[in-house]
Structures are given as structure tokens and as C-alpha cells.
Amino acid sequence: MEYPKSEPLISKRLMAGGAVLLAVGLLLDLHSLPSFLSKKSSGEPCQEVVQSQAKLSRQQLARLLTVPEGGKKQKVQEILKDPYCKLADLQVRVGATAQREAYPLEFEPQTWLVILYEGEQYAGYRFNIR
């Protein structure tokens, strides 16, 4: 008895089901590991308030996501404008001091976007829950 057409169908269904389970598992895992997505900021007070009324809109956030890491700092600053505040510099890797700027999200005030710069280069971002 041969079932040549049903085997590929079953394997495709198994692959699709496995992919869905994997995606759900990853989502649940990420929610249980808040340190992966953000770092609590209780130990990270602002060093200097730049613009106390600054808030980051969804549109600004969407535009920021189009700027590649390693892009120009000036490009990011044109999109985001003045930050709420500057955080303490850090040493991310040996010999490179990074500057950080923080922006509260307009649509989620407890969540802040922290931008990282190394010199005149945009080095990345992370979300910070306050």
C-alpha cells in the first residue's frame, strides 16, 4: 500500500504546527525574561535633563527603526529631536565610551527608549521600563 501524496502533506502540517509552537514558546519565554527586553532603570537616573517636555511618538519610533546601527548620530537626532535627558556614559567595549540619551514614549509613559552612541555613530537602542 503506497501513500506518496499524503506523506508530504503530513510533514508540511507537522512543520507548520511545530513552527507555531516554537513561536508561542519564544513569546512566552521573552515575557518571562524581562531583563532580555529591558533593564529596570532604578539605578540609572538622568545625569542631565535636556528637554523636560520631550516625548517620542510612534511615528518617530518607526522612522528610527529605518536607521541602521552604525549610521550617523546626526540622522538619529534629526528624527528624535532633543532627548528628555542624558544618562551616564558607559564603556560598552574596551576603548569605546558610549553616550546615552533617553526618550519617554508618548503612548507608553512608563517605557523609555534609550539610544546609544559611540562618538558620532549610532550604536543601537533598548527599551527601559521605569
Score class of each variant (00 low, 15 high):
H31T: 05
E108H: 14
R13K: 09
K73S: 08
K72H: 10
L105Y: 02
E48Y: 09
L105N: 00
A123R: 12
Q51I: 01
K12W: 07
D82L: 15
L33D: 07
C85F: 05
K72L: 14
S6A: 10
K75G: 00
K81E: 13
R13T: 05
E120M: 08
Q74T: 12
V114S: 02
A88N: 11
R58M: 11
V114W: 08
Y103D: 02
Q74N: 00
P109H: 06
V49W: 03
Q53F: 12
M15L: 15
Q51H: 13
K81T: 11
T97Y: 08
A62Y: 11
E2P: 13
P34K: 10
C46Y: 09
W112M: 08
L30A: 14
V67H: 00
E48M: 11
D29G: 15
R93P: 02
K81W: 03
W112C: 01
R93K: 07
Y125E: 06
A16L: 13
L9M: 12
K75F: 06
L61N: 04
P109L: 01
V92R: 11
A23I: 15
R13D: 03
P68V: 04
V92C: 04
L87I: 01
F36R: 12
K73W: 05
G25L: 01
L61A: 06
E118H: 07
Q53Y: 01
Y3I: 02
Q59W: 10
L56K: 02
R93W: 10
I10D: 00
G71T: 05
P104T: 02
D89P: 10
K81A: 15
Q59K: 15
L27H: 06
E118A: 09
K5F: 11
K73R: 15
L64K: 07
K72R: 14
L33K: 14
L33E: 12
E44K: 10
I129W: 13
Y84H: 13
P8Y: 06
G124A: 02
P34Q: 06
E118K: 00
L61C: 03
L87M: 14
R63Y: 09
Q91Y: 10
L28D: 07
L30D: 08
D29F: 15
Q121P: 03
E108N: 06
S41D: 12
P45E: 03
W112G: 00
L22W: 08
Q91I: 09
A19D: 02
Y103F: 13
V24W: 06
E118F: 05
L33C: 10
P83G: 07
E69C: 04
G25S: 11
L87D: 07
P68S: 15
L14F: 13
E101D: 05
K81D: 12
L116V: 09
S32A: 12
L113A: 02
L37T: 04
G119M: 04
L56M: 04
L80Y: 09
G70W: 07
L105S: 03
K86D: 12
R13P: 01
Q59H: 13
Q60I: 07
L90H: 08
K5P: 01
N128D: 08
P45H: 04
Q121A: 13
P104N: 01
E44N: 03
I79Y: 07
Q47G: 14
